[in-house]
Design a protein around this nucleic acid. Sequence first.
DNA 1: CGTCGGCGTAAAGACCGCGTCAAGGCATCA
DNA 2: TGATGCCTTGACGCGGTCTTTACGCCGACG
Lengths: 233, 233
Amino acid sequence: MSAGPAATKVLVVDDEPQILRALRINLAARGYHVLTAQDGTAALRAAVDGRPDVVVLDLGLPDLDGTEVIAGLRGWSTVPIIVLSARTDSVDKVQALDAGADDYVTKPFGMDELLARLRAAVRRATTTAGDGEEAVVETDSFTVDLVTKKVRKDGVEVHLTPTEWGVLEVLVRNRGRLVAQKQLLQDVWGPAYATESHYLRVYLAQLRRKLEREPAHPKHLLTEPGMGYRFEA
Amino acid sequence: MSAGPAATKVLVVDDEPQILRALRINLAARGYHVLTAQDGTAALRAAVDGRPDVVVLDLGLPDLDGTEVIAGLRGWSTVPIIVLSARTDSVDKVQALDAGADDYVTKPFGMDELLARLRAAVRRATTTAGDGEEAVVETDSFTVDLVTKKVRKDGVEVHLTPTEWGVLEVLVRNRGRLVAQKQLLQDVWGPAYATESHYLRVYLAQLRRKLEREPAHPKHLLTEPGMGYRFEA
DNA sequence: CGTCGGCGTAAAGACCGCGTCAAGGCATCA
DNA sequence: TGATGCCTTGACGCGGTCTTTACGCCGACG
């Protein structure tokens, strides 16, 4: 930002104290600023409060499932997530990666390898930066809060169904950009629905009816015929 | 119009034919568009020509060292690179990752794990796409934004149909270079339309009418008679 | 000088995609 | 069991887009 290069902030989540300790020492010795958490809820809280640049997440936490933690983070953040796990089963890896993790390292792991993967993740995140990420997006007729998943129109809260929210969220996360129908369908309904473009017509109509001032002449939820949809603030 | 150009392009680099074949079959079966190369120099050339969305790179190529290939790519591209290697030594992993690779998978690997890591890499690249400035191409009369898919002429937005945009996008991505009619037709309409060169005349005329100052004397969307078309900034 | 192939322009009809309304399943919950 | 909310599916009109045809122009070539 402005005042000089701050240290990279790493959030380490693990329920085993000795691993937590080993990671903290190693990371601190290399100049990282280290946050720690011992369970999933604490991890999510620490992520909100501390805004880490990268998360090292052990699976098998006592309170939450690993994919839940990933989903909780991905709901509002694109911070790189490196998963640690003792489980070598490829099913676990696929689940974690598809839930939104960036990398998956199996225990026992070499510290230098983890550090290299961490450097790679941070490098990627900063070089591709452009993080115009704001958690709450406003237009002249409604506002969308990506963290609390709430939508207000003229100040009063509007209830959206899960699918309506899913569509809106993808569009708002890509604000300004054209989102292809296929991508929208795959992100909201899953890979098998890539051609069900009729769903989009129905749900875009509903969203416009709930959010736009003139649903027949939308100013924010725009159609690009034959290509996809676009959200404009 | 056929299904063609929306698929993710993967460049697979490996000197072992059977691995190359296995990857190509698996990736193609999942809808990826696959390019292949068997050595480092071919890989770099293929990356320039084909503009893949992700690269799967085997180390231990006959001609170039793995890190050289990575460096050759990183010199001009931020495309995600997933390294394959038979070597489990952590020193190799650290070298490759620090050279600019995004992920490192040791052989033998599970195909579903590789595919998951590939999905993760592509997802990251598309969601964090902060290339912003680089993706805007300007001329003295109009600008093309390849990320948001918007075109402006003298500041005001111009609406393009999907086919118009398809043609323009191919030309702009190959700016300065001659694009053969056949290539243009195949990229936009699909392989079956390679000889329908009349379409190009119609759509180039429309694009010029929408974008050029003097559509009869184009300065940016140029015809190379008998060969193809070229976009010049 | 005439012909021919490639290119640019214009226009018209067929076709497809979009928006809209509404009805039918299918869960959940009282 | 009935009520409610949500997702899915169908039908239909309309407007925009693609395709196709027709024609004039120009340079190459015989």
